[in-house]
Design a protein around this nucleic acid. Structure first.
Lengths: 332, 332
DNA sequence: CGCGTTTACGTCGTTCGTAACGATA
DNA sequence: TATCGTTACGAACGACGTAAACGCG
């Protein structure tokens, strides 16, 4: 058994059981991959795939188990490489982050700036998507960190470090009637106007709907979008009243909009940063994590380093002590 | 990075950082091992060992981490081989068991007989020792199953399946005064005679001392031995009253000894069978496990197969439902 | 006939073992 | 000088790529 055989095996699986595609992905010849697969099957004395004529048909039952093990092995090989790189090239490497628009646009810029100052030689890759897409990217294995809000159940193969909490804010065109209230705004007020807000993804934003439902109200959501910039644009056009993350809202006054504080109206959201279980993080990755979650003490960072299950991490943090993010472009 | 390099690396570590010894163990030449180590260090760009002149001095900090990962990798490689063997040679292989004298002498014979009937081509290796020695053997990695009583904390890297419970019995020469009591024997009775019993190992047998202490009594232990046969021999010589596992005691009448039931006098002991976490068990191994722990249903066996932590197993069994072993050579 | 896999074969790089050398206590 | 690790070198092996054959739709 050779590491390369296992690598080829996984490449075949990850390319839809197409040996040709796998070979291309591995920058090698197709017969080579074919042969190594054959040798592996011969050595193990078992079929890993069923054959349809000459093509691969399906993964066999035993094949599935072998593939699982092979993944563990290749993961640990990567880990060894990571470890080693940390010793001779502390400050070089790459960092891939998958996150949502709100984080990418309103939170990460300052963090990335600071990070680049410290690690100018680390190349950064930012991948943007919905929670579901982020989960897919994580599964596809080339992501170091995922940063998202809620929807914890989509990310069971990650360890999630809670990073900060945020409230929603209400955004209206300048001079809107809601800005003239002489009292704090209520859900009832909001239920009476057309709303513009985020699309409802699985885990996360339905908390907004529930907040209304809990008071027996039905919001009139006339438009949803995936990103705050789009929402604000439509609010500016007079399509309705916007509800967005506070981080995104506080820049609004520069754009002909006015922000109304909505603290307390909706449940607070918690944004976390997650990384794959069993992954060895490079030193610069830990520093990045600490930039995203600055409340983490060095002691806690050590504990995180040793954590193997979500519980290990959960006991370290008290939700009420997480920093609260508001303001756009405003450093914590 | 090659699997063989990792294998050599572990061999070097497991042979006291002696490359020559490692090479012998791997049935290869010494320069080959030396060279592969060098290549590995070069590829990783880090020293795995410090050098004292030309000899290896110590493992470096980074080396330790690499070694840990390498162990995981080699373990999974073994697992893949195990899986594969199960597919084409279901009933061939080997099975190494580490256990104590009592199990080896009084419990395993019937189990092994039955097992050999079903798997005549599986070669069996029985390793005998104290709990501590068994723990060492498990750590040294060539053991499939450990079977022992108590001392769970010595075996944190194993998953333990509780198998059966047993009481202690009192063994005396035929006609001894204690056999003439017209009431049930008490700890008080035993505190007044010289006792012969097992050596007190860490976890296990001190429960005997505590049973006396709980009633404010101090037993007069005049002789201890590690195995019941020795104890019975000395009892036969009149050295004192024996306290042994019931499994060992019930054969005693064939040997000029008499057995007194001691149920309730001492706390019940639970014997478990354990295997390494993350190890893939061959089919015949599961059957062996089921012979040792016959109360395990096929449903529970499936759950055990999927278990990754001790808790997963603990929830499956209620201590009070475990079979109770008495009698020597008596099938369950 | 196109797509994808396997077979065949020549080339090249790697590993292995033997032998010689170097360093340490 | 005995022990242990490294260097050197030739032989054997194994992986790779090209070219060609094979099977299926």
């Amino acid at each position: 058994m050779k590491l390369q055989q296992l690598k080829y095996l996984l490449a075949i699986v990850d390319n839809g059981l197409n040996i040709t595609a796998a070979a291309e992905r591995m920058y090698t010849s197709q017969p080579g991959v074919s042969k190594q697969l054959k040798l592996l099957e011969e050595e193990l004395g078992m079929q890993l795939f069923t054959r349809k004529g000459k093509s691969l048909g399906d993964i066999t039952v035993g094949g599935l188990q072998v593939i699982d093990r092979a993944r563990i092995i290749m993961r640990e090989v990567d880990n060894i490489r990571s470890l080693a790189s940390d010793y001779y090239q502390e400050a070089e490497g790459s960092l891939s982050i998958a996150t949502t628009h709100t984080q990418a646009r309103y939170v990460l810029p300052q963090i990335v700036t600071e990070f680049r100052k410290r690690f100018p030689k680390v190349s950064l890759n930012l991948h943007q998507g919905t929670s579901e897409q982020i989960a897919d990217m994580v599964a596809a294995n080339d992501i170091d960190f995922a940063i998202a809000t809620g929807s914890n159940d989509l990310f069971e193969n990650l360890l999630l470090v809670p990073s900060y909490r945020w409230d929603r804010s209400i955004v209206v065109p300048k001079g809107h009637a809601l800005t003239k209230l002489d009292r704090k705004i209520t859900l009832q007020d909001l239920a009476e106007v057309p709303l513009v807000t985020y699309v409802f993804s699985f885990g996360g934003e339905s908390s907004l709907k529930r907040a209304f439902a809990d008071e027996g109200l039905k919001p009139d959501v006339v438009f949803t979008a995936r990103d705050a910039d789009v929402i604000k644009t439509y609010v500016r056009m007079g399509m309705g009243v916007g509800i967005v993350a506070s981080m995104a809202a506080d820049c609004a006054d520069k754009e002909g909009l006015q922000v109304i504080d909505a603290e307390g109206l909706f449940p607070r959201s918690t944004t976390w940063i997650g990384y794959r279980k069993n992954a060895v993080l490079r030193r610069y990755m830990f520093e990045f994590l600490q930039l995203v979650a600055p409340h983490v003490s060095s002691q806690q960072l050590d504990d995180i380093r040793r954590a193997t299950s979500q519980e290990d991490i959960d006991v370290l943090f008290d939700a009420s002590e997480l920093p609260l993010r508001g303001g756009c472009d405003e450093p914590l």
